[in-house]
């Protein structure tokens, strides 16, 4: 019963989709709009892999109903950078070997982007805190922390 017209922006583009009341934001992004970077890890809010930003703030798209995004702006990794080349942040993660299987990488990138937007030279503990709600089962946290510190050094 897709009877709610959802109008919102995804990565800068206006979208109109009919959604079911029970559809989550995650379902709409992945299944209706073919945006596959947000992942469903646990579906209960613990793993953080479905993280996207909603009006600029990272939230869990598996714990957000699609209709809650009406009139709002959603950003996923597909909307970071120019879509062709890696951004300096992505390049730094790559150089540090901060992606192993890659499953958590989109969520990590959303969290790192949010941190760098708010904090100029984040400390180790700020970086760790920022990614604390995003699980990496390869346990590759260390290279991520190192990469984030490098990004700022490079920009200076």
């Amino acid at each position: 019963m897709k009877d709610i017209l959802l109008e919102f922006k995804v990565n800068g583009q206006p979208k109109k989709v009919y959604v079911d009341p029970n559809d989550r934001l995650l379902d709409v992004l992945r299944d209706y709009l073919d945006i596959k970077s947000p992942k469903e890890g646990c579906g209960t809010g613990d793993c953080g892999l479905c993280t996207v930003t909603l009006d600029g703030k990272p939230v869990l798209s598996c714990l957000t109903f699609a209709f809650q995004a009406r009139g709002k702006e959603v950003t996923t990794v597909e909307g970071l950078g120019n879509g062709k080349e890696l951004s300096p942040m992505q390049q730094a993660l790559r150089d540090a070997g901060a992606a192993q299987c890659g499953f958590c990488t989109p969520a990590m990138e959303i969290m790192v982007t949010d941190l760098l937007k708010r904090v100029d030279n984040p400390t180790d503990s700020q970086i760790k805190e920022q990614i604390s709600g995003t699980l990496c089962r390869c346990t590759g946290y260390y290279p991520i922390v190192e990469a984030v510190k490098k990004i700022k050094e490079e920009e200076r």
Binding site: G45, K57, V59, E129, G133, T134
Partner: peptide, 9 residues
């Protein structure tokens, strides 16, 4: 309180 994403919500 939860993780950073939960705090935003």
């Amino acid at each position: 309180f939860g993780g950073p994403q939960i705090r935003n919500m």
